[in-house]
Write a protein that binds this DNA or RNA. Sequence first.
DNA 1: AAAACTTGTTTGCGATCGCTTACAATAGGG
DNA 2: CCCTATTGTAAGCGATCGCAAACAAGTTTT
Lengths: 113, 113
Amino acid sequence: MFIRRPADIGDLVRATRQARGLNQQDLADRLGVSRWWVNEFEGGKPTARLDLVLRALNELQITLAAYAGDDAETAAPAPPASSRSPIDIDDIADRGLAPRTEAARPARKRRRR
Amino acid sequence: MFIRRPADIGDLVRATRQARGLNQQDLADRLGVSRWWVNEFEGGKPTARLDLVLRALNELQITLAAYAGDDAETAAPAPPASSRSPIDIDDIADRGLAPRTEAARPARKRRRR
DNA sequence: AAAACTTGTTTGCGATCGCTTACAATAGGG
DNA sequence: CCCTATTGTAAGCGATCGCAAACAAGTTTT
């Protein structure tokens, strides 16, 4: 998956978080931010801080790689062929990034922040 | 090149900018930000806004891709094998991302912002 | 060497962020 | 249907950002 806009990352984080059975508060706790921030960020908040963004990605074990796109005629990059396939949001639930669902899902409790 | 910390992006942007013969003010102009911001960002500013960061990458034609790193035993990802090789900072000057040097370098003038 | 250019850093301030708290809306299950 | 859980949104405020302008320091060119 290619990242061009803040919403690309936000969507990706949301899909990954849900696939892992975490709610926004869970992720917020892990990142040391408020639930509000997670909600805004997932919604594509342009002004999200870079360190928090990278921390969120790290927490969800999403790796970012940078590539040179140095010629206009190769501006539409072919997805890298790799055993580690790029993330496709629609694919996440299908492939089931949810081996941790039982471990990650806390007991039902009503907690609000 | 893998992006884990703000400084990773900052270093990358600096190297790419220099390889293209742009100074900080040039890039700032293109991004619609102050030179101060570019300087801070290149220095690894944790709180840089995501939209500005992505705009900088886009302006320098650096593509970001996201990958799932979903198992601890594959936490050290092999670089994707691709005709579009990942960016290595030390490699930039050697490979010469500078075909635009003449076009991009403005006439000498003393201008400060 | 001097001049010109570029980068690094600082100050003060208006603009904006991220927070808490709370309510509205939505989703899921019995 | 009801209930619970989760997400979306808003208001007000202290904290922080990004700015312009300027100077210091470093680098490159003449």
